[in-house]
Design a binder for these strands. Structure first.
Length: 889
DNA sequence: AACGTCACG
DNA sequence: ACGTACGTGACGTTT
């Protein structure tokens, strides 16, 4: 028997939208409803095997119901823009699925569906109606089943007349009476006030219909009688409104609804565009499959590529001959950490041919000419991730110079929040699909496996080709965004500086570190037994779950805050609980020491190279949305400093040469100085021009007092306000931070803005700018898109607004120190200094310096850093040196 | 793999 | 009324 699926398009899209978090793709397009809709379609096709398929949509604004009852659907909230923008996507998806769509001016989807099910009842056609709307149950019949969407979007609950009888004790048509009595606030259908589902069902079981209930109103008691009599007309009208119109002028043209499967290539294209990565991987788009559509177009268009494996003299010879015409190079590195990763090989692309050189061949005797070419700064080609491949290659004695464009950096600068900055991700984002992902080729986790040479060389070769194809596209996009200087004069030179810093590494005094670890162990042992004693039992203190049980269930301490999985036990909570029980303080101390032990002693020791006693961090240049660097393996940007106990860790970071010193240079208040410049706030500028203590100055202005009247507490509060300003202030956030009421926090902020009016203006302007452009920029044209700035959801929108305020500040500060690093590296090599730049910690640089260069370095470093970028306020740098990182403070 | 926690700027 | 301060990475536990 033929089977027709009819989907109530608006209803299902709505359900999907509210059931799923507000996903968006990298273009800022929201996709959650489209995604939910798609998963539902796929599931229906697989499970129901329909022969006919239709999606019905509401058309236009005014339906005939409005003419009869002007309040109809009046109470309904407007469709949020995040959803309405997805309807065109859903329609495009349906086209790719080759599913027919229908809408008719003046009618709702309900009416179309009602009419079709009536027509279907007259033929031998089985029908499944998919909707989130319970009213549709009235359409159920022997041949028509209603599938109601449940909470999750892909699950549905099927109702035939028997199941409706079982659940409500009603026939399908009585569903209309049910609604006539109950009403429906979302459609603004009145019903009878005070009658909900329970009462309505009772009445219907007794009297079977609205008309009968009214007729027998006299038999009802008290209030109920009154209400039914009073609102009889409303109930009649409500029933009419709830009745689905089944006489839409249309015919059962079933042939047009016949379904024979989706168009794989079109669907794949849509999934790519919407970035439905999990679906792309799950679905087999390689052939027509059993859906039997357009098998000829199923293959993604792939460029013809000739692959030459150069493993012998002849192969290398062929490559060497073509070296002058190479257009892109790809170096395949295995693993996250380039300091310890394996290099598989290199592909050299030229006009439709990729020459693949396995790495052992590249480092062998045959490939000398090829290595010379790689090392030649004049032979510039585009690559993917210059920073990483440079580090990996150099550890293996291969030099890399002459990179014309790093497509990874380009992709990052064009959209620093992009999560898939892989080569295949960039290729499909910039319109060059067809490159498989690393995961598809190598597998992931335990299943990671290098494929055989022919497959490997083809894949690496395709990557080189993709780099070549991407280059002009990215180039143009960068140009359009005014990012030419940013990438070529800042980020790419910086990548080289970073590679050098990381390869240099920083020396760790392993003996001292181990010694410190032993002291911690001894202290921890004591604290642990003390905690067990105070708690009255032994448990795993590291487990927030077990700790919560002890503190809140066993000891009965008050619950301050909850997490989504249970009690919160973070430091903020524990500090509030300290007065209640002595164990709390011990736990706080335990946490401090355990953190030092696990992360900074044991964690650090694991990263020290035994041969050299050094750690080599990997600074990542394409992670942070603001343009900051991040540091991994180990993270050397979060070494303790705030508490003395932890700060001692810094003593183990020492110079790698005897007699040398550690030199640190940090920008003083760089973010607030940047804010002064960007906002052009006169007071703030003046404060920095006169080199005042900014927090004291803020306290003076906000509290309206003189310098000597500012006490420690006032300064502390002013400091918190300054932090808040940089983060994109909210009264709530400030109140949390200062432990004051929201009102008091709001008052502080008001006082601040009354004084620093330029700052207020900036905050207003930047949010407006973000709304207008969809992005904000830093002084050096770094850009961050904020699609959620127009969200109707308060939280999402507020977050975007704070980000709009913070990113230009944090990002410009990042621009400045990056610029200083590039300039300093150049200056140090010009002056042929032996000193080495080792680390960057957002507003601080760390060097190791021989004694005879100390004076020069102190001068050069502060000079270059302070003049890295000319602002309307001076930049100030504090320089210090010592025998280790602790002493240089 | 996700969560809670905590280290830094 | 809503309910988060901005940006990161590592560790241990739990699922």
């Amino acid at each position: 028997m033929p089977k027709l699926i009819i989907i109530d398009g608006n209803s299902v899209a709505n359900r999907a939208f509210y059931a799923l978090p507000l996903l968006s793709n990298t273009q800022g397009l929201h996709t959650n409803a489209a995604y939910g809709f798609t998963t539902m379609l796929l599931k229906l096709i697989e499970e129901q095997q329909p022969t006919h398929f239709l999606v019905a949509f509401d058309a236009g604004k005014i339906t005939f119901r409005h003419k009869e009852y002007t309040e109809y659907k009046g109470g309904r909230a407007k469709t949020p823009p995040e959803l309405s923008e997805q309807f065109p996507l859903i329609k495009e998806l349906l086209t790719a699925f080759q599913i027919s769509q229908y809408e008719l001016a003046g009618y709702e989807a309900d009416d179309i569906i009602g009419t079709l099910t009536r027509l279907a009842d007259e033929t031998k056609m089985e029908v499944v109606v998919v909707t989130g709307d319970k009213d549709m149950l009235q359409l159920a019949s022997d041949q028509v089943t209603i599938a109601l969407t449940r909470k999750g979007i892909s699950e549905v609950e099927l109702y035939d007349p028997a199941q409706i009888q079982e659940k409500y004790g009603l026939t399908p048509l009585q569903i209309i009476d049910l609604k006539g009595l109950m009403g429906d606030s979302s459609d603004n259908i009145p019903g009878i006030p005070g009658v909900g589902e329970k009462t309505a069902l009772k009445l219907l079981h007794e009297y079977s219909s609205v008309e009968q209930v009214i007729e027998h109103a006299g038999e009802l008691k008290g209030k109920m009688k009154e209400k039914v009599e009073q609102h009889a007309q409303d109930a009649i009208m409500s029933k009419q409104l709830a009745t689905i119109y089944r006489e839409v002028p249309m015919e059962g043209e079933w042939d047009k609804l016949a379904y024979s499967g989706y168009d794989p290539s079109a669907l794949q294209g849509m999934f790519r565009k919407l970035e439905f990565k999990s679906l792309l991987e799950k679905m087999d788009f390689s052939g027509a499959g059993d859906n039997g559509a357009d098998s000829s177009e199923a293959e993604a268009p792939q460029e013809a590529l000739q692959v030459v494996v150069c493993a012998d003299e002849a192969g290398i010879g062929a490559l060497v001959e073509r070296l002058d015409s190479i257009q892109a190079v790809h170096i395949e590195v295995v693993g996250e950490n380039p300091h310890v990763s394996e290099v598989l090989g290199a592909a050299f692309y030229s006009d439709g041919t990729s020459y693949y050189v396995p790495f052992d061949v590249l480092t062998g005797e045959l490939a000398g000419r090829v290595c010379d070419w790689l090392a030649d700064a004049d032979k510039a080609v585009p690559v993917y991730d210059m920073h990483k491949i440079k580090v990996a290659l150099e550890w293996n004695g291969v030099a890399l110079e002459g990179v014309s464009l790093d497509v990874l950096l380009a992709g990052y600068l064009l959209d620093p929040t992009e999560s898939a900055l892989t080569l295949d991700g960039l290729a499909s984002k910039y319109g060059l699909p067809g490159l498989p992902s690393d995961e598809a080729v190598f597998g992931k986790g335990a299943k990671f496996q290098v494929p055989p040479l022919d497959a490997l060389s083809e894949y690496i070769g395709r990557k080189a080709a993709a780099i070549h194809r991407l280059t002009p596209v990215l180039h143009e996009a960068l140009e359009k965004n005014g990012m030419h200087k940013l990438i070529f004069d800042l980020e790419m030179p910086l990548a080289i500086v970073l590679a050098r810093m990381e390869r240099q590494g920083i020396s760790v005094n392993v003996e001292d570190l181990k010694q410190y670890g032993q002291e911690l162990s001894a202290q921890l042992e004591q604290i642990v037994s003390h905690i067990y004693e105070l708690a009255g039992s032994e448990f795993n203190i590291n487990s927030p779950k077990q700790l919560g049980d002890i503190l809140f269930d066993k000891l009965g301490l008050p619950v301050i805050k909850k997490t989504k999985t249970g009690y919160s036990t973070d430091a903020e909570v524990l500090e509030k609980l300290e007065p209640y029980h002595p164990v709390v303080g011990e736990i706080l101390h335990y946490r401090t020491l355990a953190k030092l032990q696990s992360t900074y002693v044991e964690g650090l020791l694991k990263e020290v190279r035994p041969e050299t006693g050094k750690v080599h961090t990997y600074f990542r240049q394409t992670i942070a949305a603001t343009g900051r660097l991040s540091s991994q393996f180990p993270n050397l940007q979060n070494i303790p400093i705030r508490l003395e106990e932890g700060r001692k860790i810094r003593k183990v970071f020492v110079p790698s040469e005897p007699g040398w010193s550690i030199l640190t240079a940090d920008y003083s208040q760089i973010e607030l100085r940047v804010l002064a410049h960007i906002s052009q706030d006169e007071r703030l500028k003046e404060a920095f021009v006169n080199d005042m203590d900014i927090h004291t100055k803020t306290a003076m202005d906000v509290f309206g007092v003189t310098a000597d009247q500012v006490d420690a507490n006032m300064r502390r509060q002013a400091k918190a306000v300054n932090f808040g300003i940089v983060y994109g202030i909210s009264d709530y956030g400030l109140s949390q931070n200062l432990n004051i009421t929201r009102k008091e926090a709001a008052h502080f902020i008001e006082q601040y803005f009354a004084v620093f009016q330029g700052v207020r203006q900036y905050m207003d302007d930047i949010v407006k700018e973000a709304r207008q452009n969809g992005y904000v920029t830093t002084l050096l044209q770094r850009r961050r898109y904020l699609p959620e700035i127009t969200a109707s959801n308060f939280n999402l929108r507020s977050f975007a607004e704070r980000t709009a305020m913070n990113t230009p500040i944090q990002g410009t500060a990042a621009d400045i120190i990056k610029l200083a690093m590039v300039k300093l590296a150049a200056r140090m090599s010009e002056e042929k200094l032996e000193s080495r730049m080792l680390l960057q910690v957002h507003d601080e640089l760390v060097f190791e310096v021989p004694p005879h260069e100390m004076e020069t370095m102190r001068r050069i470093v502060s000079e270059v850093m302070e003049s890295a970028l000319a602002l309307d306020v001076p930049l100030k740098v504090d320089v210090d040196d010592g025998l280790n990182w602790y002493e240089a403070k």
